[in-house]
Design a binder for these strands. Structure first.
Length: 497
RNA sequence: GGUCGGAUGGCCGAGUGGCUAGGCACAGCUCUGCAAAAGCUGCUACAGCGGUUCGAAUCCGCUUUCGACCUCCA
């Protein structure tokens, strides 16, 4: 197993991955808050960490991948207030919190499936772990790092900071925070502005509420991840991932809570993906500039000229290193679509390549280069999951494959071993690790037979130099989204959009 | 205001001291009835100004500029 290095946000440097239990890897990733439809910005962490967990598996680790769903809090849908239980008559007209959460959870899962993200091993919900959260809060109170006020419980950040490195993850100084923290709801209850809520007392109109030792209320935002990650991965686990915008206060708070509750920090390696920007600004709730996944897939958005296949989005995201910002534009997506189409066609061609290569390579220089491009893929992934470089190398291979097919490169140029290595590299890295898959559905036999007939008729017409007929067939099929290609060897292939 | 991170060719984007990715677009050529595809070739950039060095996109300083976080946020 090669050594895997990646950037640990906590130490701000690349580190060698050494799991707590040899052969096993625990990965926790902050999932979405399901109070609205997922947008493109959400796609980034889930695709990024899908590749991370796929790669860990590829290296031979037994991976437990946990990704939560945040379904607790104060939810309402735009223009539709959550139902007020007191007003029973309105019940069916209004949105039940559970209905809302369910709707967006299903949409999110559907999106993940379209992106070919593998399901996490466990997908815990915040509402399903209220007991665990309450119990953790009790422990923190017992240890003297939290206090109750009017049915709410707050974490004592100052006390914590006196003996632990609060702010290390997000690189900030507590004193600076104090001066700049703005007025927030319930601020007057806190002993200090830096304190954060572990449990919030629910006002009467608040629908999501649970019984607790401190009265009816609901959990604070940060405690769910601490409770669920420790439950399923242990009090200390290997990797915690999420978007950079969660570093503070969410992850910083997680560290503080867990450190007090369990007596030691929760996470060995922190990983954060960078943001997707649009016109240079972060795509997000507060900017009101999201492009929803459904809009992306349908093309139904002012900024989009066309619909984009989920695989194009996945490819687009993986072409950039996960720690760089990725600026969105319609042009960039179009470029990705063309690029991915070309790469995938080369891959399909490679799989169909006849095994005519001999044991020795006629072009040893090319053979060596190809072998090197293939081998480097592993190095690139082991160096902070550099998917951009992996794709660049696969693109180096594309002209070789196309050249063999087109006759510009001799079929004997590469050794049989190298051809096999190339096939293996594409399959393992493009499909298994990067998780790319074909954009088009498999052709059915019936379609294939019908097209074979048309191709045959067209070939006959061409033989008679009846180009009017042959072009008519080609053009009409093209306008139906079926592209015919006259190959060099006289055969005709087709692609369906 | 505080903290942090960027500024790379027409566009998107890798890259931490010399070997100067890759994609898209563009131009020429090859192939071709035409087209598409494919192949070959070309386009050689690192915000500005200083400094370190034999040598810097890469290290240091300053300037300009953009952004992220500090508040729900992937």
């Amino acid at each position: 197993m090669p050594d895997l290095y990646f950037y640990n946000s906590y130490t701000r440097q690349k580190e060698k991955f050494e799991p707590i239990t040899p052969g096993y890897a625990g990965l926790y990733v902050c999932g979405p808050t399901v109070s609205g439809e997922s947008h493109m910005g959400h796609a980034r962490p889930y695709i990024t960490f899908d590749v991370v967990q796929r790669y860990l598996k590829h290296l031979g680790y037994k991976v437990r991948y946990v990704r939560n769903i945040t379904d607790a809090g104060h939810f309402e849908e735009e223009g539709r207030e959550a139902v007020d239980k007191v007003n029973e008559k309105a019940k069916l007209e209004k949105m039940e919190p559970m209905e809302l959460v369910h709707k967006y959870t299903m949409l999110y899962r559907q999106g993940m499936k379209l992106f070919n993200c593998e399901d996490p091993a466990i997908e815990p919900t915040a509402t399903g772990h209220i007991i665990e959260q309450i119990s953790m809060i009790e422990t923190i109170i017992e240890k003297g790092y939290a206090y109750e006020v009017n049915g709410s419980v707050y974490f004592d950040v100052n006390k914590y900071a006196a003996s632990y490195p609060y702010g290390k993850l997000s690189g900030r100084v507590l004193e600076d925070q104090l001066e700049t923290t703005r007025e927030l709801d319930g601020q007057e209850e806190k002993r200090d502005k830096a304190d954060f809520a572990l449990w919030k007392s629910a006002p009467p109109q608040h629908i999501m509420r649970w019984k607790s030792p401190w009265g009816e209320g609901f959990p604070g935002w940060h405690i769910e991840c601490s409770a669920m990650s420790s439950k399923y991965l242990g009090e200390t686990f290997d990797i915690h991932g999420g978007g950079m915008d969660l570093q503070f206060p969410h992850h910083e708070s997680e560290i503080a809570q867990s450190t007090i509750a369990h007596g030691h920090p929760p996470v060995r390696y922190w990983m954060h993906n960078n943001m997707i920007t649009i016109n240079g600004k972060k795509m997000g709730k507060s900017y009101n500039n999201q492009i929803k996944l459904s809009e992306l897939f349908s093309g139904n958005h002012p900024m989009l000229q066309q619909a984009y296949h989920p695989m194009v989005i996945r490819f687009y995201i993986l072409q950039t290193h996960y720690r760089s910002t990725l600026d969105f534009s319609n042009e960039a997506l179009q470029a990705s679509e063309r690029a991915f189409r070309r790469l995938w066609e080369a891959y399909e061609l490679l799989n169909k390549l006849p095994a005519t290569a001999g044991e020795t390579a006629a072009d040893s220089e090319l053979d060596a280069k190809v072998a090197q491009w293939c081998r480097e893929c592993e190095e690139f992934m082991c160096d902070d999951f550099n998917t951009a470089k992996v794709l660049a190398n696969l693109f180096e291979l594309a002209p070789v494959i196309n050249g063999i097919k087109g006759g510009q490169v001799s079929g004997k140029a590469l050794s049989a071993t190298t051809v096999a290595l190339m096939k293996d590299t594409f399959h393992v890295f493009l499909e298994e690790i990067l998780g790319m898959q074909a954009m088009q559905a498999q052709q059915t036999d019936k379609l294939d037979k019908a097209l074979s007939l048309l191709i045959e008729i067209r070939s006959d017409a061409k033989k008679r130099k009846d180009f009017a007929t042959s072009d008519q067939i080609r053009n009409k099929l093209a306008s139906a989204g079926i592209m015919l290609k006259d190959e060099k060897d006289g055969t005709v292939s087709y692609t369906v959009e």
